[in-house]
Amino acid sequence: MMLSRVADCLYWMSRYLERAEHTARALDVQLNVALDESPWAASMGWMSLLGGLRVDLPMEVCADPQAVTNALVFDKSNPSSIVSCIRNARENARQVRDSVTSELWEELNHLHLSMQSQTIDRIWSVGPHPFLKSIHRGSQMIAGIVDATFSHGEGWQFIQLARYLERAMATAWLLESHFGMKGTSLSEDPNPDEFIAWAALLRMCNAYEPYCKIHTVELRPKWILQFLLLEPSLPRSIRFAADQIQSAVTAITHSTGATDAAHVRRLAGRLAADLSFVSIDEVLGDDFADYFSGIVTRCVEIHNAMNDRFITYTVAAALRDFAART
């Protein structure tokens, strides 16, 4: 049993951290591959990344990696920039300082403080990689600390729910953007630029090494799509996220004794089931943009349903509930 506000803060802390990690890693990968790509391919890569992060920047900014980095990392006016994400994550944790462990708080505070002393000029002068790596490592460290120091009760389930909702949506956008730009022709023998771009997509999802373990280094678009969308054992695949979302939703409805939460359980269960049983050829036969925006919409529905049921419910409904229980 926990305060609704606390659940809400834990949820958003987790989403912001996941977003910061994803942005930092994707940007880090793109900055790295842009060094190897031909200028045309590199600019395609940037477009694909910015589309995948749902960031809209002026054309002149898009053409300048330093300016893009500045916008994605340091722009305080953008709520999804890394500095905003970490500040918001910390602010949410601070609001419920009594409900997060000291280990988590100190690490998050450390990450926040380490951002404060950085500027685009400073990180650019030494190369942005160490800095970006410190961000996604910091976020991963925090995820580890959450798993190791929180009791795996309701609060932790809200953190899980948030992490995997954010992840499912971020991966869906990234796939949509990437496959949308590369077209659905899916050439079976990529040229060097294509190879780099496909490898980059895998790296952005922490999936390059796991992919090679299964498919070797033969990068085939269809296999990549299948891997990032449907692989049940890959932590950043959408299927994996959907399974985790379902499990968190089930745990939360159980622990709160919410007997009338069938609606949200149905939404989460359906998403997980669809991803478990869909075949890659069915996905390929569909319109990519429709398919991925469908996944995002369903994630948003789950978010809204959880919010309505557990966070912002009306007092009148809750009083009826209370009377029924006592």
Binding site: M2, L3, V315, F322
Partner: peptide
């Protein structure tokens, strides 16, 4: 006085 929790009012 009640508090709003995820499991309703307490």
């Amino acid at each position: 006085v009640y508090q709003r929790t995820t499991a309703g009012l307490r």
